[in-house]
């Protein structure tokens, strides 16, 4: 996975903030997933339009107090998980 990869949320996923965390329901599989505040912010951004991971890193760096290298590593790991669960989809370049 590269920072230049571009993603959008799956149309089969519905999200709702509950008690300060985001709960995702994959309508296709019926499975549930939880996202913390950073993950929830990333989901919120991806719900607006497709984003490159580097763009998401920019947003998170501006809003949260964490080193850039850590943000990039965490974001790539999160995107890989979300992709594997088919909650987000890669956009063609």
């Amino acid at each position: 996975m590269q920072l230049t990869d571009r993603f959008t949320v799956s149309q089969d996923v519905v999200a709702r903030e509950v008690g300060g965390e985001l709960v995702l329901l994959d309508l296709a599989s019926g499975q549930y997933f939880g996202l913390d505040s950073v993950g929830g912010r990333i989901w919120e951004l991806l719900s607006e339009r497709p984003y490159e991971l580097s763009e998401l890193c920019d947003c998170i760096e501006a809003e949260f107090d964490a080193p850039r290298e850590q943000i990039e590593a965490d974001l790539i790991a999160l995107a890989a998980q979300l992709c594997e669960q088919e909650l987000i989809e890669a956009e063609a370049a």
């Binding site: 149309q11 089969d12 519905v14 709702r16 509950v18 709960v23 329901l25 309508l27 549930y32």
Partner: peptide, 27 residues
Amino acid sequence: MQEALSALMPHSFILDVEDRERLRAHF
């Protein structure tokens, strides 16, 4: 609250699991 949401959903009565809009509203 998050656990409760996923625990409650299976006890719903859903007519059409392919009707995404209604499922979103029910969620």
